[in-house]
Amino acid sequence: MRFTIDPKRFAEAVAWTAKSIPTRPALPVLAGLMLRVSDARLTLSTFDYEVSHEVTLDVAGASDGACLVSGRLVNEIAKALPAKRVEVSSAGQHLELLCGAGRFTLPAMPAEDYPTLPTTPFPVGAVDASAFAAAVARVAVAAGRDDALPLLTGIRLEIAGDRLTMLATDRYRLGLVEISWATTNPDARIDALVPAKTLHDTAKTLGPLGGAVALSFTGGRPGEGLLGLTAGPRRTTTRLLDPTNYPPMRNLLPATALHQACFHVATLVDAVKRVALVAERTAPIVLTLTTDGLRIDAGGTEQAHASETMDATYAGTDLSIGFNPQYLLDGLSQVGSPHAVLSVIDPHKPAVIDPADVDGHAIPGYRYMLMPIRISR
């Protein structure tokens, strides 16, 4: 195997594929990066039986062949190469990289032991890459991070015709976003649970590249299917989680609210950050809603205390409601508009944050539901 390639293209391709290399692989070959050349096209791939990444590039001076080497080592080398053409070749049990005055010789792993990457069927539809990345980020903040509860570490994808809905929850909050997309089958109805970290990392990388992301699904028993994401020469597959027993958190979204406050998002974010400085790790911050505006409090009478007021348009009776400050900030960071509306039924039931226009009218497309923390007054 032999090829020549621009160092920047090579580094970007290696970085993309190296994303799925496990820190502690079950088998040594799963720490490898497969380089395969065929018909003057280089394919780089990694696979750990859960997630695969693959990219195909045109190369010069190519001769066919394949070589499997340490993915993390190639990634570190590729990032450090000077801005000169890279010559890569395999000979025997080694891979050699030449770039300028530098020469790197890496031991090869047995390529015949490397698992075959999964294939993806015809896409169900495609969505703008930047819109997809933004939508995933908006719900990923609410996904669980406890691997002991894998069900809650996923993002649920619900496809119905030209609407793509994503939601995630860790039982204490819920992020829900709905976007339009170009479907290949208007009658398609799909409900899949995707690992949030993989989906977020992949979408975050694909978003700035522009273009569209095509989504493919394979069936199987719950928890055994695959999601395929294809954007130009890049392709990712990830195993789906078992959606059985996923909590029906959407049912908690209130149809109406007795109390609504419209506020400037950046002003509240800054105030919460300042006031939360005196709060203990598990202590809530308290929002007090009145017709005079919004007051943010943290701390108690016998410890450090902070309070700040800000303008807000409020409809309802006076009330106080407590929230985990970080959970509140996570939701506010994804509102995506200068103003938002906080809707509350009562201080002991879930509250909802919606993006809003300057007049306080909710803008559809994103909702963030947050469970309150009981406070004593």
Rank of each mutant, 00 (worst) to 15 (best):
A15T: 06
A18P: 04
S20N: 12
L30M: 12
A31Y: 01
A31M: 06
G32L: 02
R36L: 01
R36F: 02
V37E: 01
D39F: 00
D39E: 15
D39C: 07
F47D: 05
E50C: 10
E54I: 05
V55C: 05
S63F: 00
L68F: 10
R72Y: 06
G102M: 06
R103Y: 02
T105W: 10
T105Y: 10
L106M: 12
P110E: 15
P115L: 04
P115A: 05
T116Y: 00
P118L: 13
T120L: 14
T120G: 04
T120H: 02
D128L: 12
A135V: 07
L152M: 10
L157P: 03
E158G: 14
E158L: 13
A160P: 00
L164C: 03
Y172G: 12
Y172V: 11
L176E: 09
I179E: 10
A188N: 05
D191L: 12
H200D: 13
L206Y: 01
P208R: 05
G211S: 07
A214H: 04
R221C: 00
P222V: 05
P222D: 08
G225D: 04
T236S: 13
T244Q: 09
L252Q: 13
V269N: 07
D270T: 08
A271L: 07
K273A: 14
R274G: 14
I285P: 02
T290R: 01
G300E: 14
Q303S: 15
T309W: 01
M310W: 02
M310C: 14
D311Q: 13
A315N: 12
G322P: 00
N324W: 00
L328S: 02
V335N: 05
S337E: 15
S343C: 06
D346T: 05
D359A: 15
D359V: 10
G360I: 09
H361Y: 12
P372A: 15
P372N: 15
I375A: 11
S376D: 15
